[in-house]
Design a protein around this nucleic acid. Structure first.
Lengths: 101, 101
DNA sequence: TATATTTGCAACCAAATAGTTGCACTTAAT
DNA sequence: ATTAAGTGCAACTATTTGGTTGCAAATATA
């Protein structure tokens, strides 16, 4: 089973979960209230996010608080780097056009 | 059928195709030579990339040259923005630790 | 102690995914 | 005019995905 950050953020629900967990740690129950699907479905998403280490957990009693491990997101950022030069080039082209006007 | 840039880059073969097309435009045949799977399989990936507009085509005779439309990648970059502050915070924390030493 | 809450895990299901082969169409070359 | 090359599309298949329900284990509360 492939389990990398790119596959993890492919699903819109998982992206939403990540956005929520970036703001504050939450339990699966609390998270599930933000979505239409069942708690178990949300838990499955959490499991996938945990497996690729973009989400970490901390147990307190019977509750488990999940929080985002945003360091993992750097992998995406680093992958994007190979394309950034061309964004910049395109931006420079636009700049040239604006100068000509 | 969901067809967005996040789902597009979830597949490692599609990421490799994008990396190749960022360097130079290529035909499906030329692209397929870089992979173990069949030309048709690669063509399917190209189709998905085209549908979410991260790849554009230009026909010359019977050949079709595909090239990367890297502007689309900005969508990912923009999505990452919401997490960047916390990378920075973490970086600042490391900075503080280093200062203390 | 008995009951309620929080959670993870397993079994199951429909749909999507990534791959294959075969075929038809268009364009180039002989 | 025939043949070869480059491409897209359809049909089929195995696997993965995202969802469900049911249940058991652990912890809190009455």
């Amino acid at each position: 089973m492939r389990r990398d950050i790119f596959q993890a953020i492919a699903d819109p629900t998982r992206r939403a979960i990540l956005s929520l967990l970036a703001l504050q740690a939450m339990t699966p129950n609390a998270l599930a209230q933000h979505f239409d699907s069942t708690r178990q479905a949300v838990s499955k998403h959490i499991k996938i996010l945990t497996e690729c280490e973009v989400v970490k957990q901390k147990q307190t009693g019977r509750e488990i608080y999940y929080h985002a491990n945003l360091q993992k997101m750097k992998e995406i950022d680093i992958w994007l780097d190979q394309f950034r030069k061309q964004w910049k080039d395109r931006f420079d082209q636009l700049d040239d056009i604006l100068k000509d006007l």
